[in-house]
Design a protein around this nucleic acid. Structure first.
Lengths: 254, 254
DNA sequence: CTTGCGTTGATTGGATCCCAAATAGGCTAG
DNA sequence: CTAGCCTATTTGGGATCCAATCAACGCAAG
């Protein structure tokens, strides 16, 4: 009945770099690695993370893995079930709606603050990110099946764009909260929702351009409104897509 | 002929209650206990938490303590310094301002949502909480030096009041985010700011009454405005108080 | 054939002991 | 008085052990 994926992803033991430079210690890097793999879909939602298996795979002992899994639980990426283990959570439609509701409010606010506080240096970075969206669209248009370049670039642009806005807003705790929200509903889902559709991507890029414009003019109200609507549209699209996927997989009986 | 006591010598173990009912496991309960002690000022800001000391005091081994400290770090209560240990963080003025800025936005939103979605059962609880504020004011007025009853009741009322609003708003993730924010700037600071001042408390109660009124009328806009302003006033008062305390302790040379 | 129950295997939660690395603070030599 | 070394503390991580727990399986009774 159930697929029962045990997620023994890429059997490369120490080949995968467990230790990243900017992480404080082993546990931090494990958290980073696991979160990335989960976000990338490498470790599918619903699968179990066995302490021993993870430990062996990453070439460490059970102890740091335990702590890392607990961290992932704290941020909502994983659920810990008593004496059974850690399971990767699949965000429900409800989760997505709720989380994006918060995104909408908080990003709108960050945008308004950014419009008033952004530095010229930050504005340049924002413009650069906005330009990268258009490059990504071009990538996708000329892509022959392989959309990975377009995806990577779009993802990078998106991350940088919203990061700069939040940074410019100047509220570090806001940045932290939003970061946490992204752990609950990973960003890469957005790309799936955009679904390699050039028209949607163009619209998305246009929205970003509008936001950049409002911020560069120092128009806080316009920035808030546009960001709010931008997030709302993304959210609606995402919910619709996820619903379709759910529908699909529940009807199909191949 | 040796005493042979060592085995059962863990007499101090169950002295302090390490295990709470609704906590999943030991680590969770440690987190709860430590957070409470820190919030109560029992463990002062800036002090170190030694793994071994905490472990012995709570009658557990170092391992769950390590995980608990890491949890506390994740929520910002404590900072982990490489090879030195965990230090209780003292929220800066900046922290307070930023965190309350988020409170303002999010609680305002929750209030607006609550005005439209609240059930009659929740409305009753909200009214009960609001009534408790007035009892707390009365407690303080008749208190002869000992304000602890008033404080306890006010704290209880405040927790319940805002909890119901958030619950009524229906966004579980919003509740979680706000809960996390409270770990960064503990609620009990608010009482210190109110400073046993009957007039301030009365004003505070009046504001809550106004919020209750707006929500019970289903007036989302009024609810948002009043909650926003309520949090803003609390925030300003808090910042002022903390500043005064800081000033005080830096000027005094007794 | 189904239902209920006991057994068993897998897995976590926690304890205990161990060791390396890093840091603060003291001590010594110049 | 200062630079540099030394040592005590403390954390980070590993290894091993054991008890509690839960799922799944199989067996027996109806």
């Amino acid at each position: 009945m159930k697929p029962e994926v045990t997620a023994t992803a890429s059997a490369s033991a120490q080949a995968s770099t467990p230790r990243r430079a900017n992480d404080r210690d082993l546990v931090d890097s494990l958290v980073t690695v696991l979160q990335e793999r989960i976000n990338a879909g490498e470790i599918p939602a619903g699968s179990w993370l066995r302490q021993e298996a993870v430990a062996k795979e990453l070439g460490v002992s059970r102890m740091p893995v335990r702590e890392a899994l607990r961290q992932l639980q704290a941020r909502g990426t994983v659920e810990l079930i008593a004496n059974r283990g850690a399971r990767v959570r699949l965000p429900s439609t409800r989760d997505i709606i709720e989380v994006y509701e918060l995104h909408r409010i908080l990003q709108g606010h960050a945008g308004a603050a950014a419009a008033e506080l952004i530095t010229t240096e930050q504005l340049e970075r924002l413009a650069a990110a906005e330009a990268m969206f258009r490059v990504a669209v071009e990538d996708l248009r000329t892509a022959d099946g392989d959309t990975s370049t377009a995806q990577r670039r779009w993802h990078e642009a998106n991350t940088e764009f919203h990061l700069v806005i939040i940074e410019a807003g100047g509220n570090k705790h806001l940045a932290e909260v939003l970061e946490n929200l992204h752990h609950k509903v990973p960003r890469n889902l957005t790309w799936i929702a955009l679904g390699n559709d050039v028209r949607r991507l163009e619209k998305d890029a246009a929205e970003h351009a509008g936001i950049l414009d409002a911020i560069s003019r120092g128009d806080a109200n316009a920035a808030r409104t546009r960001l709010t609507e931008h997030v709302k549209r993304a959210s609606d699209l995402l919910v619709r897509t996820v619903d379709e996927i759910a529908q699909d997989s529940s009807t199909r009986r191949s």
